[in-house]
Design a protein around this nucleic acid. Structure first.
Lengths: 354, 354
DNA sequence: GCCACCTACCCAAACGATTGTGTAAAGGCG
DNA sequence: CGCCTTTACACAATCGTTTGGGTAGGTGGC
């Protein structure tokens, strides 16, 4: 069984020690410590010889042995709905970068936004003895979180927040407000929301931020104009289909809480003969790299996804070290592009145009 | 699993053994084996007691201890250019699914398509003592591969291939041919290629497949019509800019070897007043979930990304077990959509139309 | 000259599992 | 009844580190 992996057996502490004629523990202390333990461990001459030989032989400590002894794996578990969602993937890139800087490694798993899978994947991670978890897929009423806390497992939330637990997120409420301001100022009065999944705080907060601000501005936004949907293009398409099919005058603007839903919606509108940016304004969320490059560039709220990932990792590290942490909400920024640049036509123009 | 409220120290073999008044090794043999070693290890009565207690206490073996002894970590390393590329992310989902089925876990890292980082990340993975590597970012002239082979490290390639090494890829040559056939039959005679990065076999094969077939059909495709580019929207935009700016009659069709490059190109064409699908046909590659949902649905060659990921994982498992493996090339399929559905206008119609 | 204190190490016990070998008791056979 | 298998375990080494204790020999103070 051990055939193929046995290229060259990795060099161990004992190898180095016996080659130098000293004890493995001495080698360990020299290599291991930041010269505070090392000071008492060996003469500077010996220490140098040890370090030189270690480099020469390409010594790298066996992480399994180390973990066994120290009870720390320096591995983290990351659970996301799906990595093929560019938003989560970008956050993961932030995690990975920050993790690598602190000599952590990360396992990632997809939960497909199923609470069952979420729990199952978490248990797999814990069976691997990860030092902590980053959960990017928490659901509104999750009972996994109290459970993990009761078991004293270090974890932080990412992207979606949950009251009472530390999280790194975008300030989604503000994001929603930005869009409300923008559309109101552009002259829109009839809007619809493609609101996302009601179990995700991102969807709830963006929607809530928009609605509250819209009301404050004097706008009217009936419940029927808020369409809950999946986060992907297909979800956006279906929601747009619903919007188009609704009785009464069509909205002049649509806010989709996710770029992909927005893209799906744009497809639908076009299929119904509406020109996005003229007949109907569309605003997305996250400002994925696609948004500015679309045939009709998509207005979108930029959320610092990469930084959210980095923050989540840094927070988790502090939780692991027993520190108290506060949730962070990073500020979003609205980028207005062609998909929502024009003011709505008034009714007379509208009928002329068609 | 570890549902019991103990919270802190996981239960060990020794705990179970002392509670039952037997030796840890007996417990190990009972739990460890698929009743072939277990048979001789304990009476069926004892075995049952062990299994019951293990379940009750939520025992799960310490993977670090296990690895230390067995010299197998059941962890794999995956290196991709960037996980925020939906193509690679989808492949990773396939890997993860297949890995989970075989009780493997995976580390993923981004190399940003830099050979330096690629090597560095590989070393980090190996320092973690992964059982094998899946490389999704191999470059044409890579010297990392022979190096890994010389060190007897089990690995397979994914997405991109490299002569002499096992890989799981799409049959990109066939993919290119499909596009050539389609565009030729639709009546196009002047085409340009947005060819991708010349160090990626995907780009090379798709381009080569197209060019060869195009010539076989009697077409003419000068070198100047093949624009090498990045794989993202920005790359597609730039390439399209180049195409539009070239002297002589503009092409009636463009084949971009990647959906994102195609999307970027579509944006550029539109900005230049060209209607994609009428004035100019565009075909992409990979058939990402976006393609059919775009405002102008994008024709694209579907590559079985998820399956490629699964295959790569299964291949790696066999390599780890010392088996001989053959590369697999999975067959692509062309989906024709609005972006390339129409036949090109001939010159007279063209001048009338404008 | 004695004691205390460094210096520069060594020793050995963990950590939690796997696995080759040993062995008492039970049972079968002649 | 003695001998030889089984049966059903126990024992102990081992994987590579870390880490709390030694300890021998030298140095310095009084």
């Amino acid at each position: 069984m051990n055939r193929s992996g046995s290229g060259r057996a990795p060099v161990t502490l004992k190898d180095l020690a016996s080659e130098l004629g000293i004890h493995p523990s001495t080698v360990s202390r020299v290599l291991h410590s930041t010269s505070d333990v090392a000071k008492g461990a060996a003469s500077s001459v010996t220490a140098q010889k040890v370090r030189d030989l270690a480099r020469e032989r390409g010594y790298s400590p066996d992480p399994q042995a180390k973990s066994l002894r120290t009870r720390r794996t320096r591995a983290l578990g990351v659970i996301v709905p799906r990595l093929s969602d560019i938003v989560l993937a970008t956050m993961y890139e932030g995690i990975e970068e920050a993790a690598a800087e602190s000599n952590y490694s990360t396992f990632v798993m997809n939960s497909h936004d199923s609470t069952d899978e979420q729990r199952r994947k978490a248990e797999i991670m814990l069976a691997r003895r990860v030092d902590g978890l980053i959960l990017g897929d928490v659901h509104a009423g999750s009972d996994l979180l109290p459970d993990l806390r009761a078991r004293h497992i270090p974890f932080v939330l990412m992207n979606r927040r949950h009251p009472g637990f530390p999280s790194a997120t975008c300030d989604d409420v503000v994001g929603g407000e930005l869009v409300a301001d923008h559309l109101w100022q552009a002259g829109h009065r009839r809007v619809s929301l493609i609101a996302g999944e009601p179990y995700a705080s991102t969807a709830l907060d963006r929607t809530a931020g928009f609605r509250q601000r819209w009301r404050d501005l004097g706008g009217n936004l009936p419940d029927s104009s808020v369409i809950w949907s999946r986060f992907d293009t297909e979800g956006g398409r279906e929601a747009a289909e619903t919007i188009v099919g609704q009785p009464g005058p069509a909205p002049t603007a649509v806010f989709a809480v996710n770029d992909f839903a927005a893209i799906g919606a744009m497809g639908t509108f076009r299929a119904h003969g509406l020109t996005v940016g003229q007949d109907i304004a569309v605003v997305g969320f996250n400002d994925t790299s696609l948004a500015p490059q679309l045939p009709i560039p998509l207005s979108s709220v930029h959320s610092p996804m990469f930084q959210i990932g980095r923050q989540a990792m840094l927070m988790l590290r502090r939780v692991i070290n027993g520190e108290q942490v506060e949730s962070v909400r990073m500020t979003p920024e609205l980028f207005i592009r062609e998909s929502s640049a024009a003011s709505p036509l008034d009714e007379s123009q509208r009928s002329l145009a068609s």
